[in-house]
Design a protein around this nucleic acid. Structure first.
Length: 560
RNA sequence: UGGGGUAUAGCCAAGCGGUAAGGCAGCGGUCUUUGGAAUCGCCAUCCGCAGGUUCGAAUCCUGCUACCCCAGCCA
């Protein structure tokens, strides 16, 4: 998609058509309807961007509605985190935050109406019996012996269900539709069940609760929703959705359900059940672990709302089952941060370098732009002195041909400073391990000066030892080693957890980081984008790697 | 013996009877005081398969095939 192209999809086509035909007074009103039973993830972000996005594009509205019809699974903890996540993504619902539970009274009245119209009945069959009577995918169901109770008896029984006269599970209210339908959802679906549970909003007022299939279309109609966008697994619920809308009297709006394919992302899992397992079995540290595809995890990792919105736009909306390459998500955040993030220096795996011809107690403050490509981010001073650190990877004692970095006898530029030459390698006598490098610098090559025509192949980042700040750096990688962790039905996805998804380093960062605040995002020059973690304290900065920079050297090495 | 849906490049995805957009990934060049960024170029003679209609088909018709969803008093 060209970035200038207007975002479009089959959903836009449907809306355009409805608008053309003047359906629903030519308004567009959507809703994002999470059940408050877990944390939101990137798949929900797709739905949020779609629903709020469509409303914005058509100058309509999008409601936030909690689908809280099953008190045994839901909790206020989740309604709070969901609001926070939607807000963080950049969407506003103003005063349009609702709960399906707001409509419990109305929903009850509508049910009474259906009974009066002989379209619903109270069934005494047990859950097991209902299942048996439902038939199977390939064989028809049969009608319940209670299906033909009189309207009066149904009315009485339903009222007594509500009054708490019957034990949990002993009776249900069912729609009277068609027990031989090829669509199982139409085989007299349950509308209400008896469940004594404390509801997070209505407390103990109710002991009967409506089912999703009943509550959802009616909630949509009550709110004047015009386009009720959901995922494909609800496609064969649509006839029931429409049946409810058509058979409840006096509804003044006709919402239309439209289905799209849910998001799958490579190298991760998306189902609430699996994410919960990762948390509970200790594969990650919590729902907001930076490796999690949850909104809270991505936020802590350092992803921006802009990047996530851009991602949701780029992946498009369609109905085919698909798995988006996580590289696209990573591309989006690099793209967003490229001009926004100050580019500072951090040496992740330090190697000591002594510059022998630099005066012992001298500190020279170098001018450094904060973002070469965005002058608006200003400049800072970087101390340069006799002892500095460079990256271990930036030195090789016996380098291959294409290695452009430091090696014995070779010269490289230190970004924002001087060109140095490696004169000598100092090793531990016993282990042979490289302890430090002795180098010399060329005073004529200070950054910005005429470098007397001197060209070097490589430019390194560095940190002056004396002024360096200690930091913990958390390097994150894909949570799973396989692009599809659930390769086949008989693989346990946890077998594919990446044992190297987190690497913790003790690093040195330049003094400019002294002012860094939790949530702050930076580019560590030549390495990637990093975000200050809330675990940071006065004593210790903690950084999360959001994403690495593209690295063609690493790629070359990998190919070999 | 059922019902619903989907098939266009490695991954997404436009396309709506006039001769295959775009993005990501990949590959190659230029440039570069980040092996980053930027920039230029390459990357489907072909649209799940087989027939048919048409001057002309990814688009229409017929028949296959593959994959996904559905038998909660979950959503």
């Amino acid at each position: 998609m060209k970035m200038s192209d207007k975002f479009t999809s089959f959903i836009h086509d449907i809306i355009d058509q409805d608008l053309k035909e003047g359906i629903n007074s030519k308004k567009v009103h959507t809703r994002f309807p999470p059940e408050p039973n877990g944390y939101l993830h990137i798949g929900h972000a797709k739905s949020i961007c779609l629903n709020f996005g469509v409303a914005l594009e058509y100058k309509g509205f999008c409601n936030l509605r909690f689908d809280d019809t099953n008190p045994s699974k839901e909790d206020v903890e989740y309604v709070e985190s969901i609001q926070e996540d939607v807000k963080w993504l950049g969407y506003r619902w103003d005063d349009r935050m609702y709960y399906a539970s707001d409509y419990f009274d109305k929903l009850y009245q509508y049910a009474v109406q259906l009974i009066e119209d002989d379209k619903a009945y109270v069934d005494d069959l047990s859950p097991e019996e209902i299942r048996e009577y439902r038939g199977t995918l390939t064989s028809p169901g049969k009608e319940s012996p209670y299906r033909n109770r009189s309207i009066e008896e149904n009315l009485d029984l339903f009222e007594r269900m509500k009054a708490g006269e019957f034990p949990d599970g002993s009776k249900v209210l069912r729609a009277k539709i068609d027990m031989v339908s090829g669509n199982l959802n139409m085989r007299d679906p349950v509308l209400y069940r008896i469940q004594r549970a404390n509801h997070h909003r209505t407390g103990n007022k109710w002991c009967i609760y409506p089912m999703y299939d009943y509550a959802h279309p009616l909630s949509d109609a009550i709110e004047g929703i015009t386009h009720s966008i959901c995922t494909c697994e609800f496609e064969d619920h649509r006839p029931l959705y429409d049946w409810i809308i058509e058979n409840v009297r006096n509804l003044n709006s006709r919402p239309r359900q439209i289905e799209f394919a849910r998001l799958n992302l490579s190298h991760t899992v998306m189902s609430k059940r699996k994410l919960r397992q990762l948390v509970e079995e200790g594969y990650v540290e919590g729902w907001d672990d930076p490796r999690m595809p949850t909104i809270s995890g991505l936020r802590r990792r350092g992803y921006t709302p802009e990047a996530i919105r851009d991602f949701c736009e780029r992946i498009g909306v369609a109905k085919a089952v698909s798995t988006v390459d996580i590289a696209l998500l990573e591309h989006c955040v690099r793209q967003d941060l490229i001009f926004k993030a100050p580019r500072y220096m951090a040496v992740l795996r330090p190697l000591k370098v002594v510059i022998d011809n630099f005066p012992e107690d001298q500190v020279e403050w170098m001018d450094a732009d904060n973002n070469q490509e965005n002058p608006e981010l200003g400049t800072r001073k970087m101390p340069f002195s006799r002892v500095i650190y460079i990256e271990q990877d930036d030195f090789m004692e016996d380098p291959p041909k294409k290695f452009f970095r430091l090696a014995p006898g070779r010269e490289v530029r230190l970004k924002h400073a001087y060109i140095i030459k490696c004169e000598r390698v100092v090793k531990d006598e016993n282990t042979g391990e490289i302890i430090e490098l002795r180098c010399t610098y060329d005073p004529q090559t200070r950054s910005g000066m005429d470098t007397s025509g001197k060209k070097v192949k490589g430019t390194l980042h560095w940190v002056s030892a004396e002024q360096a700040i200690n930091a913990e750096v958390r390097l994150y990688d894909h949570l799973f080693v396989k692009d599809n962790p659930e390769e086949s039905k008989d693989t346990d996805f946890k077998q594919n957890v990446n044992p190297q998804s987190l690497e913790i380093l003790k690093s040195f960062v330049e003094p400019a980081f002294a002012e860094a605040q939790p949530g702050g995002r930076y580019q560590f020059l030549r390495q990637g984008y990093f975000c200050v973690d809330p675990d940071s304290s006065e004593e210790q900065l903690v950084f999360n790697r959001i994403v690495s920079l593209k690295d063609s050297w690493a790629k070359m090495q990998k190919k070999k």
